Computed example of a mutant assay.
Amino acid sequence: MITSGSGALAGLRVIELGQLIAGPFCGQLLGDMGADVIKVEPPGAGDPMRKWGQGAEKVQWEVIARNKRSVTCNLRVPEGQELVRRLIMTADVVVENFKPGTLEKWGLSPDDLLDAKPSLIVVRMSGYGQDGPYSQRAGFGGIGEAMGGWRYIVGDPDRPPARMGISIGDTLCATYGTMGVLAALHHRGRTGEGQVIDAALYEAVLQVMEGLVPEYDHNGYIRERSGSILPGIAPSNVYACKDGPFMIGANKDGIFVRLAEAMGQPELAKDPRYMTHLARGEHQAELDERINAWTSTLTMDEVEQAMVDHSIPAGRVYTAKDMVADPHFRVREAIVEVETQSRGPIRMQNAFPRLSKTPSGIRRPAPAVPGQDNFEVYGSILGIGEEELTRLEAQGVV
């Protein structure tokens, strides 16, 4: 499904200089909202994301590069740097996630760019930020997750820290970078001024750590790995059914009363061990055992129906296979089919969030090859003729 809507950011031009996940995911979010995203890839193999993903064919690129045009440019040579500088001067936003100092080394310092175009917005994503004692260290999303507090609290108590299963550090940083772009656009709309957005991977992770820091600062409490439970919040866990796992969240007093009724054990809600939020937290393990003893006698269908009948927050633990088959996902078009250029139709997550007046969407598939849009972009935007472009290509500039 390719939409024709323009999106809230229609008319905005973004130059994406980053590679792998953080910079490109920021570009994906902006492109989904309607921006014209021009992705700059190194000549040859292009962005390494073209070869990332699981399974026999690597298709993660089809998601992260949708709604983008691709040009190639060698940013390590002066002629390539000048070419990108000219392209940036036609844009509203620049996205990059190189090591701090790289743009400066290439003669593309944000300060110089802003001197030439004061309305420009530059979002810079890096491991540790643009300053500070760690700024020059190499940083990937997993390191940001570790330093930001995420890795330490993920996993079972008797195991080493675990990975979530996705590159959450990168995507959080990209999401906050996108938020910064939207805020900067609002400021520019009032003042005409652009600015630089400094988004660090570890700080993006830190932002979602809830009360982790003040709990230590005020109480001396350090959160530990707790597996599938949230300590002191009960019942809220994944329970075993005859045919698979099922998530139930009934930690609020009134909801727990309904859960006890659904279980055919209304007396549980009157038991002093379980009557209140604090009491259930103190007896969390034994309460989970009681609920698990009940769910294990039933199928997921039976538990799900009981939860619906008693208005209890609950749901199956989905895999991708479950998602693409689910009627709710289908009706809301949470997952859509996109006709890609090189791999045929592929289902993927739709643009999000939903806007009623200027809906986001997938307007074009990911570019099949690096530099697919060289002639279109360099020709129509910079006025470079075919002969000159052929020379640049022959010399390895594009």
Results as ranks from 00 to 15, higher is better:
353 P>S: 02
148 G>E: 02
306 A>S: 14
232 G>F: 10
135 S>L: 07
361 G>A: 05
122 V>S: 10
291 I>Q: 00
269 A>I: 07
137 R>C: 12
275 M>P: 09
267 E>T: 12
285 A>T: 13
337 E>P: 03
138 A>C: 11
182 L>E: 07
299 T>C: 02
54 Q>M: 15
91 A>Q: 04
19 Q>R: 12
356 S>A: 13
329 F>A: 08
285 A>V: 14
28 Q>D: 05
241 C>K: 00
9 L>N: 05
17 L>G: 03
314 A>Y: 00
67 N>S: 02
25 F>I: 10
296 S>Y: 09
206 L>V: 04
37 V>G: 02
99 K>G: 05
219 N>G: 15
76 R>S: 10
97 N>K: 02
62 E>K: 10
370 P>C: 02
163 R>E: 14
303 V>L: 01
248 I>F: 00
278 L>I: 14
184 A>I: 04
126 S>C: 07
331 V>K: 14
360 S>E: 03
149 G>K: 07
238 V>P: 00
291 I>D: 01
159 R>M: 14
174 A>F: 03
295 T>V: 00
337 E>L: 05
164 M>R: 13
360 S>P: 06
21 I>Q: 01
373 D>I: 00
254 G>V: 04
18 G>V: 00
374 N>V: 05
180 G>S: 05
194 G>P: 09
171 T>E: 08
149 G>V: 07
180 G>R: 10
49 M>A: 12
288 D>K: 04
389 L>Y: 10
330 R>S: 11
368 A>L: 03
232 G>Y: 09
167 S>F: 08
320 A>M: 15
146 A>P: 15
366 A>F: 02
230 L>F: 13
16 E>I: 03
192 G>W: 08
201 L>S: 07
10 A>P: 11
196 V>T: 11
253 D>W: 09
127 G>M: 06
240 A>R: 15
338 V>C: 03
59 V>E: 06
58 K>F: 03
310 H>K: 14
319 T>G: 12
15 I>S: 04
371 G>F: 01
262 A>F: 01
96 E>P: 05
269 A>C: 09
182 L>P: 06
111 D>F: 08
394 A>C: 08
319 T>L: 10
274 Y>M: 07
389 L>T: 04
89 M>L: 12
243 D>M: 05
194 G>C: 04
291 I>K: 06
287 L>D: 06
177 G>A: 10
222 I>Y: 12
299 T>Y: 07
151 R>N: 15
191 T>E: 10
300 M>D: 00
201 L>R: 01
299 T>D: 05
61 W>Q: 06
136 Q>S: 14
189 G>M: 12
163 R>I: 15
92 D>P: 08
48 P>W: 01
343 R>L: 13
144 G>L: 06
369 V>G: 04
328 H>C: 00
319 T>F: 06
142 G>W: 13
47 D>R: 05
83 L>R: 02
241 C>Q: 01
318 Y>T: 02
287 L>M: 08
330 R>Q: 13
3 T>Y: 11
78 P>M: 09
40 V>D: 01
302 E>T: 10
